[in-house]
Each structure stands twice: as structure tokens, then as C-alpha cells.
Design a protein around this nucleic acid. Structure first.
Lengths: 105, 105
DNA sequence: ACTTAATTTCGATAATATTCGAACTATGGA
DNA sequence: TCCATAGTTCGAATATTATCGAAATTAAGT
């Protein structure tokens, strides 16, 4: 018998994206910073993006970003690689993420 | 001596708009509904937009919308006329408000 | 002046969120 | 198998926010 793979994260389908929740997710400075870094870097592990913050705090924020559909996380070995679901976001909310990400400060 | 006019609302200048606060303001369902109605109607008084909600609650939400720069309020007689500061928003955050307002649901 | 209408401010309560340490889980080596 | 690494989950403390009634404010009308 095969072992079940490590329980994958639930990434909501585009049809379940909710505008209010997305805006809320992006209204937190820590999360907006995460999203900006992911935009610059393309992808990054959770650990790379903590600014000295505890892991539990970061994990909390990543979960919110995943829940609203902004971030995709895949497990590679023991690290979780995160990236923005830009295409999905753009198909559901055209122009919105771009309009936010052009704001660099 | 002239009486001072009724203390006007403080409407922040465009330079003081803060992205995170704007996103936060729009992440509340009641406030997003207000903004959508203002977009449709062009302008409206506070009373026109309560959905049966208490006035103090509406006043709270309007203040937040004013504070982030989304809404302009002018006193006309005893009513407060509200409208969206679309041009100001667009100059500070190009495309952002539009990308949100095209989402009608 | 007095009254009404529209809204704001105050104060309290309830609901939500953020933060973070500690314990737990999964994966990859030694 | 034992250990280290990377994250997650749990639980509790703190902080923010939403909601709403009651009282205060402002302007207009009588």
C-alpha cells in the first residue's frame, strides 16, 4: 500500500474567490509585503520571507493568503514553495492585482 | 462677526492616501456596498444608503470611507451629500478603484 | 426661541484578528 | 532509527473593529 502524500493545501478554485476577502487579505502590511516579495522573486519559501517574525505568525499569514486564492503553495522536500496565482487572480479580478502591485511603497 | 461654518470634514489630500487603509476600507461588505451605490448614483446622503442599519453605524462607516480618501462629503442644509473621489483615487492608485467597481457582485 | 431632521460623537459590548510560544507533523539525511 | 529542518496547529493574550443606543450637534423652518 502506498502512503498517502502529505495532506496538500487547499487552494480554492477561481470561482470561489471573494472580492472582500481578497481586499482584506491585502490590507495587512505583513501580508502585502509577502505578496510584494513573491511578485519580485517569483517564488519563495515561508522562511525566506519572515522579517524576523516567528514562524507561527508567518504561517498564519500564508494561510490567509492561500485561503483567498492569492498564493499557491507546493511542498518540495521539507520546504513550502509559494508563488502568486497571478493568472487566476487576473481572470477573476482583471487588473486588480496589477493595480495594487504597481504601488511599490 | 461671522459665525464659523460648520466644522468641515477633513478630507485627506491625495498625498496622504495609504494603500493598505484603502484596501481595508473596501474589505467591509457594508462599506463596499456604500461605495457601489455611490458609484451608481453619483451622490447620495447618508440616510439614503442605510439598509435599515442604525445611523450611528452608518456614520462610522462613512467616516472610515472619508478618512481613506474614498468619499467626499459636503454639507447641504442638514444633509450630508457624499460622492466618490474617483479622480483623486485614480491619480494616486491608477486603475485600482475601477478594477474593484467593475465587480458588481 | 422652539422643533424637527440629519448626522455625529460617546460609551459599552461583542465579534474578529494579530501575535507568539509550545507542541506537533512531515521530510530528508547521517 | 535518530536528528535536524521547515512549517503547521493549538491556545491564550492583546489589539482592533463593528454594532448600536443614547446624548449631543448643526441647520432650517415656524
Amino acid at each position: 500500500m502506498y502512503d498517502l502524500p502529505m495532506r496538500p493545501f487547499k487552494h480554492p478554485p477561481v470561482s470561489e474567490f471573494v472580492l472582500e476577502r481578497l481586499l482584506y487579505a491585502l490590507s495587512d502590511p505583513v501580508r502585502l509585503e509577502i505578496v510584494r516579495h513573491l511578485d519580485e522573486l517569483g517564488e519563495a519559501s515561508c522562511g525566506e520571507l519572515d522579517g524576523g517574525r516567528p514562524k507561527s505568525t508567518m504561517s498564519h499569514h500564508f494561510r490567509i493568503l492561500r485561503d483567498v486564492g492569492l498564493v499557491h503553495t507546493q511542498t518540495i522536500g521539507t520546504t513550502h514553495m509559494n508563488s502568486l496565482r497571478k493568472d487566476d487572480m487576473n481572470s477573476r479580478f482583471p487588473g486588480l492585482l496589477d493595480a495594487i502591485l504597481v504601488q511599490k511603497e
